[in-house]
Write a protein that binds this DNA or RNA. Structure first.
Length: 590
RNA sequence: CGGGGCGUAGCUCAGCUUGGUAGAGCGCUCGGUUUGGGACCGAGAGGUCGCAGGUUCGAAUCCUGUCGCCCCGACCA
């Protein structure tokens, strides 16, 4: 092996932080000469960056092989037709880069590759005997993000390992899914990345099961919940633990009460305690009111529908959860125009019931669909609007006085809410998605006609899984996690080089230092270590030490003034510890 | 798409309020001194001040427009 010498390696470190980088990983990767920005969210990779990326990819490949998956490689540039068949050409919206060739034919820069993987298998396989199959690639993906940010953490071009499994039975899919999931656990462990496996929303993609691997970090973009008892879920996938239903026995009848000037929950609670205190004297609280929120859904066919959702007054609507609950429709708060078009809704005093009868629900006077939070169980009593301006109704009981068109998970999740599996209260945390395993089911195979003959000679549709890992995002997260005020500190598993050798002397005067350094570098290379050698002849030691720290190779060998005594220093980048070692003993010490 | 900030040398920035022939530090080239924590001296190279209009005898500076970038939010299989 030929050692890599700084005198002719393609790397330049920057003395100051680049002005357009704010996040630590972005700042250091640019400063230390790993990447350069080309356009927002698009980066060029320099030799150091490529080496780290290759290390990560090698670990992924290794574990993909262990999981029985085979590597293939698709183009990033693909014809648009497969994406039209599954309708993703439209559904992906502005997020997809689209372009035309010279004849006007449509192409896309692939945001993900489900379609072409499916078609490839369809092209080659016809029999259940060929299944199961897992294939993967490591390829650049293109997504025209509305706002790329934080350097590599959310780019428009990024490297992803995407794997796809093909089975002809549901049990087979479960096994393939589990194999990938296990491989992910091994990969993230080898990379030294903490992760939480959370239940993810699977609805929109038509699949049955989905889990995300989140790395818990404050810079994360996803909010998830977890309990001490081991439950973890994306907030979109969190399900509410509903209280038990109660009998109507002994419940007082509903009562309309004057509550002027109480358009908000806070004013309502205050008024309730004044004008209609609870018989036993304990104060009413916001959680006992039923807040009815008007939402506007835009369906795929662009029709607009007004719906009302009832939830405890101490909860806000979480629009992300709402999007999932109403998918594929888009959700937004109702506008003044919506209210104008629905005079049956008395703003500030909306409720499912009125003295004249039901106001909300498909079968009510308005016909507006009405959904409730799962906490609104049969037998629960509420303070809510009476659809008369300035009046609320007390003791309105679900199941007795009103019914809804269904329960819906739309309320915000709060710290302390009980986990649905009974494992205790949950806490909220931030995380960054680093992997996603997904049972796609038969959606793509169905759309693209991927079928095989089974044991009985019957055509069956194949069931699929897709499994992604964000390679470049992982690189950024590792950088984000491993640094100090001097620069990067790579874990050995992904460091661009195993050892960094500094010749701390001046060529021409300290030739013994350079000769000793050459010997050490050769020894290290012979022992199988990759070496980055700072052999710059006339650079002062301070600059060399600074660059060594910035670049972040975990083991640094300083060949300098100790050479006269036949010693050098082995410097641990992470701990800062330096130990003196005989020149001949370096390769067994580091 | 909404809010904020910024575009001046390779990099980081000053200059703009109050218009008058474009600056600093770092980096780069040449010569010399220096070498265990980002040395120093001397001599250089390098910028149509994002772009386009306008005001003015004169615009980096004032006005209008436009493009781009960064951050926050919305959005994000």
């Amino acid at each position: 092996m030929v050692p890599t010498r700084l005198t002719n390696y393609f790397v330049k470190t920057l003395r100051e932080d680049p002005s357009d980088a704010e996040v630590t990983s972005h700042r250091l990767l640019v400063r230390a000469g790993y990447i350069r920005r080309q356009a927002p969210g698009i980066f060029a990779w320099l030799p150091l960056g490529l080496r780290v990326k290759s290390k990560i990819e090698a670990i992924i490949r290794d574990e993909m092989t262990n999981a029985g998956a085979h590597e293939v490689h698709f183009p990033a540039l693909l014809p648009k037709e497969p994406y039209e068949v599954t309708n993703r050409y439209v559904e992906y919206g502005d997020g997809m880069f689209r372009l035309n060739d010279r004849r006007g034919a449509g192409y896309v820069l692939a945001p993900t590759h489900e379609e072409v993987f499916t078609l490839l298998v369809k092209d080659l396989y016809n029999s259940y005997k060929d299944l199961p199959l897992s294939i993967y690639q490591i390829q650049d993906k293109y997504r025209d993000e509305a706002r790329p940010r934080a350097g590599l953490l959310r780019g428009r071009e990024f490297t992803m390992k995407d794997a796809y499994s093909f089975d002809y039975t549901d049990a087979g899919l479960d096994a393939s899914y589990q194999a990938q999931r296990d491989a992910y656990e091994r990969i993230f462990t080898r990379l030294g990345l903490e992760y939480v496996i959370v239940k993810a929303d699977a609805g929109a993609m038509g699949g049955s099961k989905s889990e995300e691997f989140l790395h818990p970090t404050a810079v994360g973009e996803d909010t998830f919940v977890r309990s001490a008892g081991g439950y973890a879920a994306n907030v979109e996938a969190f399900t509410t633990l509903a209280p038990p239903e109660r009998s109507f026995e002994g419940l007082t009848p509903a009562e309309v009460v004057d509550t002027p000037d109480t358009p908000t929950i806070a004013t309502l609670v205050e008024a309730a305690n004044t004008v209609h205190p609870r018989p036993d004297g304990t104060p009413w609280n916001a959680g006992e009111t039923l807040k009815n929120v008007v939402l506007a859904l835009t369906h795929l066919d662009h029709t607009r529908e007004i719906v009302v959702v009832g939830l405890p007054g101490d909860r806000e609507v979480d629009l992300k959860r709402a999007e999932v609950a109403f998918a594929p429709a888009e959700v937004e708060p109702a506008t003044d125009d919506d209210f104008a078009l629905n005079p049956g809704l008395v703003k500030g005093y909306i409720g499912p019931w009125s003295p004249e009868g039901a106001v909300l629900g498909e079968k009510s006077s308005t016909g507006i669909r009405y959904f409730v939070d799962p906490r609104v169980v049969s037998g629960s009593g509420w303070i809510t609007g009476s659809n008369i301006h300035g009046k609320h109704v007390f003791g309105l009981v679900a199941g007795r006085d009103f019914t809804a068109d269904g329960a819906i998970e739309i309320a915000e999740v709060k710290a302390g809410d009980p986990a649905p599996d009974g494992s205790g209260p949950v806490e909220l945390a931030r995380g960054m998605e680093i992997g996603h395993v997904f049972q796609l089911g038969r959606k793509y195979a169905e759309a693209l006609g991927l079928k095989v003959l089974d044991e009985n000679g019957k055509l069956v549709t194949v069931t699929m899984g897709s499994y992604g890992i964000g390679v470049t995002r992982i690189l950024a997260i590792i950088a984000e996690l491993n640094n100090d005020d001097k620069g990067l500190i790579w874990p050995a598993a992904v460091s661009p080089f195993d050892v960094y050798v500094v010749a701390a002397g001046r060529a021409g005067k300290d030739d013994a230092i350079f000769e000793a350094a050459e010997t050490i570098v050769a020894d290290l290379e012979r022992s199988g270590r990759s070496v980055l050698f700072d052999d710059r002849p006339r650079v002062s030691p301070g600059v060399k030490f600074g660059d060594a720290e910035l670049i972040g190779v975990p083991k640094i060998v300083i060949v300098g003034r100790g050479v006269v005594d036949g010693t050098v220093e082995v410097w641990n980048r992470a701990s800062g510890e330096r130990v003196v070692v005989a020149v001949g003993a370096v390769s067994e010490t580091v």
